[in-house]
Design a protein around this nucleic acid. Structure first.
Length: 641
RNA sequence: GCCGAGAUAGCUCAGGGGUAGAGCGCUUCCUUGGUAAGGAAGAGGUCGGGGGUUCAAAUCCCCUUCUUGGCUCCA
């Protein structure tokens, strides 16, 4: 007998060789039906794999992340089986479960694979699933595995096996399909009830762009049809929040082929939104002790040679601007730091005035690869809410905390709750890849971590993700489609102070080198607005809404009154518009609702006589009438941030 | 950049080798109204750009530009 410890702490005894499926069955039949795999001593196993020793077992179902992963991984095998059946000779790469489904990388030779084929494969998968084929695990020697896949002509599998240790190789077979696989898998294909193949894409074998490009087929599957339907509905819902769609519908920004790809044009309403955000940040920064500066959009090539950016990015970026003067070259600025370094250098500095903090909404230009461009989140010209802090080494931690506070203040004001902070440190194996003295790095890395802890940030630490010039802390936020974007960033830099020979005079009357901190709480205005649009689905907080109020006269008889109301609002810095079209009130309300205008003021006979406004709130309907003064008071109360 | 999908009226999209379609928007007229679409008429297109096949191309083929989903999830 062996002892099995379950998650609730209870210990049960079973015969040697018991499977997790047996264990589930001993608890309830329903549970046994739903068990997909099981975590045995921390490792995910097949539910029908026998257990021979005392173990800690956690049964995994669809409701566990690991259970879902098992389910999708098995679905990937099913996809492969369907592909092999339909297109014999297909060579297989890898087919893992991913965050939201699964994929399989395949080599179809010269065959083209497009949209119509997906439905065919999907049908075949369902057909195979209904056969309830069992996933069978078997151990095999390295040599046998190689001969098996060589015979089959699966060169990618052979390559994978070459890298594996003999004795650790397992195969999984379901129906007529055998795959090299570590497992685990669900008991049988019959559990897969609903399948949707989403799209095909190219993917380089082993992520290496020098190697062959395989066809990647993406799909998602579920144990119940209803869950698939819901999943597809969620995807639809997310599309409605896409900032590119809302940006067009709400007249916020546009792109023009003639201006150039990746170069956003801000429309009047988008500009109001953006300027409100900028002003919000300006005020917060002044409070936090920053000094605003302004620098030009170009700088001489020498500036970037000094900063090292030319060497690193020059060839892949916008090329230098030449002048009638032979040999004179300027670059569009890809970042603001070199300019700010020169401002710092404009006069001698004392330790007493540190830290020096220069802030600028700086427009920068970077030649992103065309395939990288995406709405406002990845563009070629954008404005950073940039600032550079020049401080003494002993001030790094305090400055970090100050910046974290600023970022948290911004996130809080805008209702961002779901974010994580990523602390990026050196790769401890390859310290020589980084510039700057070891003891400075050690200290800064420690202090960043301490600063994050002091503000109780939810952090993930990534080794090897630091920039070559210093460690950093990034704030990551998810968009409507679940993609993660980096917003706020704080980076320590040891390189630029060195390259620009920045100095300050210490208490000891000696020259010292300052530490530089780059930081941008929004990241860029473009990306931040994009994420904000998706975050609030276009329903901006009242203080940011491009049009805060739509004044809707019932008929043209009340237009004069509407004008007076608008004037009064405008005097109070409230942004509004009058809808004086020859339309019925229902129509005007509908259009204002669709445009997501936060408040509507409906004006007719009654209101005009009593000096009142009939208030309607976006999404909440009629709120009744009140005096204009009272409404304005209430409005200003709500807008306070 | 590479692989897939796409580009038709201002917007959303249908169509498809034989004179270009809808809804919304826009203009004009009627209507002067009470909390999510009042009615009628009209304007608007070299069907992204270039080349080819054909008696005939928006439609088929090639090239090109732009948009878009991927190319980081590891047997």
């Amino acid at each position: 007998m062996i002892k099995i410890t379950l998650p609730d702490g209870s210990i049960r005894e079973y015969n040697k060789g018991v499977t997790s499926h047996d264990i589930a069955l001993s608890i309830s039949e329903g549970l046994a039906r739903n068990v997909l795999s099981a975590k045995v001593n921390g490792e995910v196993w097949d539910s029908n794999r026998p257990i021979f020793e005392d173990s800690v077992v956690q049964l995994l179902t669809w409701n566990d992340e690991d259970g879902k992963a098992t389910f999708w991984h098995s679905s990937a095998h099913l996809l492969a089986e369907a592909l092999e059946t339909l297109y014999p000779g297909t060579k297989f790469g890898i087919g893992p479960a991913i965050d939201n489904g699964f994929y399989y990388d395949i080599d179809l030779g010269d065959r083209e694979f497009g949209g119509d084929d997906l439905a065919q494969v999907e049908k075949k998968m369902l057909e195979l699933a209904r056969q309830k084929n069992v996933y069978v695990r078997s151990k095999i020697s390295k040599q046998d595995a190689i001969s098996y896949f060589e015979e089959k002509g699966d060169k990618y599998k052979v390559e994978l096996i070459q890298d594996l240790d003999d004795g650790s190789i397992t195969l999984y077979k379901q129906g007529n399909f055998t795959d090299l696989c570590r497992g685990p898998h669900i008991p049988h294909t019959g559990l897969i009830k609903a399948i949707k193949l989403l799209n095909v894409a190219g993917a380089y074998w082993r992520g290496d762009e020098k190697r062959k490009q395989l066809t990647r087929v993406y799909g998602v599957s579920f144990p119940k049809q209803k869950e698939l339907t819901e999943h597809l509905e969620r995807l639809e819902e997310a599309k409605k929040r896409d900032h590119r769609k809302l940006g067009k519908e709400l007249d916020l920004f546009t792109f023009s082929e003639k201006v150039g790809m990746g170069l956003p044009l801000w429309l009047p309403k988008g500009t109001i939104l953006r300027e409100r955000l900028e002003n919000f940040m300006r005020r917060a920064q002044i409070k936090a002790g920053y000094d605003p500066v302004v620098t030009p959009h170009i700088g001489s090539k020498e500036l970037y040679v000094t900063s090292g950016h030319y060497e690193k990015y020059g060839a892949d970026s916008f090329q230098p601007i030449t002048t009638p003067h032979e040999g004179e070259e300027f670059l569009l600025k890809p970042m603001n730091c070199p300019h700010h370094c020169e401002i710092y250098k404009s006069r001698p500095r004392s330790y007493k005035e540190m830290p020096v903090r220069y802030a600028e909404f700086g427009a920068v230009y970077r030649y992103e690869q065309s395939g990288e461009l995406h709405g406002l989140t990845r563009v070629r010209g954008f404005t950073q809410d940039d600032a550079h802090i020049f401080c003494r080494p002993d001030q790094v931690k305090e400055e970090f905390i100050n910046v974290i506070d600023l970022v948290l203040y911004v996130f809080n004001a805008l209702g961002f709750e779901d974010y994580t902070a990523q602390v990026s440190l050196r790769d401890p194996e390859n310290r020589e890849n980084y510039i700057g003295a070891d003891e400075l790095w050690d200290r800064a890395e420690r202090e960043i971590q301490e600063a994050a802890d002091e503000r109780a940030l939810k952090t993930v630490t990534e080794l090897g993700e630091a920039a070559f010039y210093g460690p950093k802390l990034d704030f990551m936020v998810k968009d409507a489609l679940g993609r993660s974007w980096q917003l706020g960033t704080i980076q320590v830099d040891y390189t630029l102070p060195e390259r620009f020979e920045l100095e300050y005079t210490g208490a000891d009357n000696q020259k010292h080198r300052p530490v530089m901190i780059h930081r941008a709480p929004f990241g860029s205005m473009e990306r931040f607005v994009a994420v904000l649009i998706e975050h609030c689905g276009g329903n901006f907080p009242l203080w940011l809404a491009p049009d805060q109020i739509a004044v809707l006269p019932i008929s043209e008889k009340y237009e004069d009154y509407a004008q007076r109301v608008l004037m009064t609002l405008s005097e109070q810095d409230i942004r509004g518009l009058i809808d004086n079209r020859d339309e019925k009130i229902g129509r005007k309300i509908r259009d204002a609702e669709v445009q997501k205008v936060p408040y509507m003021l409906i004006l007719g006979e009654k209101e005009q006589v009593n000096g009142e406004v009939s208030v309607r709130k976006h999404g909440s309907g009629d709120l009744g009438s009140l005096k204009l003064d009272a409404f304005i008071k209430q409005f200003r109360e709500e807008i306070k941030i």
